[in-house]
Simulated scan of single mutants.
Amino acid sequence: MQTNNRLRESLVVIICILSIISCLAIFMAQQTNQYNTNFFRMQVVYIIIGFGTVFLLSKLNITFVRANILWVYLAMVILLVGILIPNPLVSTINGATRWYQFPGISLQPSEVAKSMFIIVIAHFAAKYERVIWKQLLITWSLVAVILLLIMRQPDLGTTIVYFVSAFTISILALKSTKLVITILASLVVAVSGGLYLVVYHVTLLEKIGFKSYQFRRIHTWLDPASDPNSFYQVDRSLKAIGSGTMSGNNSSSVYIPESHTDMIFSTIANQFGFIGASLLLILFMLFIHQLIIAALHMKNSFSTYVIAGFAMMFAFNIFENIAMTIGLMPLTGIPLPFISYGGSSTLGNMIALGTILAVIKNDDTSLSRT
């Protein structure tokens, strides 16, 4: 119990520090005068609301949630289906329908639903872990529905995040080493085949529902000279990071499109240099490390699967966001967890933290020993 409490406290402390960095970075991003809105003040409000959410969710009775898991899944499906049905609350932005629009605020359901998704998949993975075929059939049938709904928005980046989280839980739940190796080998073949189609036969993918702009980003990533306009954002990001030198560029801010959201790591590297960017990476590594330690420390498999799913979700988000700012990965709309500006992303991450704290607290009293 004392170990669990220490784990919970360390996670909260790390997120508090990351939240302070978020506010400072957003304030710095505003100094380029490219925005009229006071994003700094709004982010402070979002973080306060977020920590209130963390406090409430940390008291959650996980046994009750698992007993009503089908209702949780149904609520998630309704959230995601509702955004695809034409209605006054939904609007199309840049060809995508991802947000509910309320007076003064917007809500991206795919961000909020991440925690519900991981809880559901972990529950069924633990419940049927002794019957592999049943486990795979049920969990991936549930996963497929959610992935298709998110792809319809369309939101390829978030779809990949959901897939990676579910895949991690599924691999951990399998007790057959041969099956794990077979699945991993099949995934490598599938990804390689997908990349081949993207590069040489993209029209085939467009016929099954993918959008051309999604692949344009990949083509630009592979060959920046093919589309200088699309590479502009990454080019500005690289210049900002490079001009940050060792301790930061104190003379003037470098203009970076979306410097307070997707490209906020570039702002941090520009303003605080290699030292500041490295300290941020260390904090992220400590956070993921604590999640891994927590997953290994859990006594029932459900708790292990939930925390491992969150650990992979955050690790993938962090890697993809930072990698795209330095040109190692294609541009996506994935924000930097706990750092990027945004009400939906902040709330979604805080919901995840609250859920993790509740799972750690209820580890000994969860629905069963699974």
Rank of each mutant, 00 (worst) to 15 (best):
I268C: 00
N68S: 07
P335T: 11
L367V: 04
H219F: 11
W140Q: 13
F265H: 08
N317A: 13
S58P: 09
S252Q: 13
A277R: 06
V198G: 08
G276H: 05
M42F: 11
I121A: 13
V112A: 03
S253F: 01
L238P: 03
I360W: 05
L57F: 12
L147K: 01
Q31W: 08
L367T: 01
L7I: 14
G333L: 03
S368P: 02
R66P: 03
M350Y: 05
F55D: 01
A75D: 05
R6D: 10
Y73M: 05
A166R: 02
R152K: 15
L142D: 11
R6A: 11
T203A: 10
L84W: 03
T168P: 04
G342D: 07
N362A: 12
A126C: 10
S368D: 12
Y73A: 05
G193N: 11
T139D: 11
R236E: 09
T304K: 13
L70F: 14
N349D: 14
L195D: 07
F338P: 06
Q233C: 07
F319I: 15
T203W: 08
A315H: 00
R66K: 10
G194P: 13
Q101N: 10
S301G: 12
L60T: 15
Y196N: 12
G194T: 13
S226G: 04
T346Q: 06
V198Y: 04
S252T: 07
M350N: 11
T177Q: 15
Y255L: 04
G343M: 09
I351W: 02
D235E: 14
G354T: 08
T158G: 06
G276A: 09
I326E: 00
A269N: 00
D363A: 15
N270F: 01
L205D: 15
I48S: 01
A122P: 05
T182M: 10
N94M: 07
A125V: 10
V189P: 01
I339V: 10
F314W: 14
